[in-house]
Write a protein that binds this DNA or RNA. Structure first.
Length: 115
DNA sequence: CCCGTGACTTCCG
DNA sequence: ACGGAAGCCACGG
């Protein structure tokens, strides 16, 4: 029996699958879970998984490649530092090569995605 | 138990 | 094309 917080676990699972040096967006994950408009809930899942070091929440940004969640991290520029450490180019809390390193679960995983 | 909030995105006018 | 409003799921008060 799946818990009621199935959405959380799924979101965390997808975020955990984000490769090193890649980033994804809340909407992409939400869409992969079948809830396109539930992007905010994905952010909540990140907040819940924040205590879990296995979930790279810093690799999850907005659809524009903006570090919208930087304010929720421990420090102020911690999220940017973590991403830059992985080779991600960031300018003013915005990923410059976002489209290049964007990792879309709908394209990469395509598990439940119909062909 | 009901209402509001939140790391966003999409749709309608 | 731009701006405003709705939607989605979960949690806290």
């Amino acid at each position: 029996m799946q818990s009621k917080t199935n959405f959380f676990k799924k979101a965390q699972a997808v975020a955990r699958k984000i490769p090193y040096g890649r980033v994804s967006s809340y909407g992409a994950i939400a869409r992969y879970l079948g809830a396109t408009k539930s992007a905010r809930t994905v952010g909540w899942a990140m907040n819940a998984s924040k205590t879990d070091a296995s979930v790279p929440a810093h690799r999850v940004v907005s659809s524009k490649g903006i570090l919208t969640g930087k304010n929720h991290f421990d420090g102020t520029n911690l999220m940017q530092q973590l991403l830059e450490n992985e080779g991600v180019l960031i300018d003013n809390y915005q990923i410059t090569n976002f489209k290049e390193i964007f990792w879309d679960p709908n394209l990469e995983l395509r598990i439940i995605k119909k062909q």
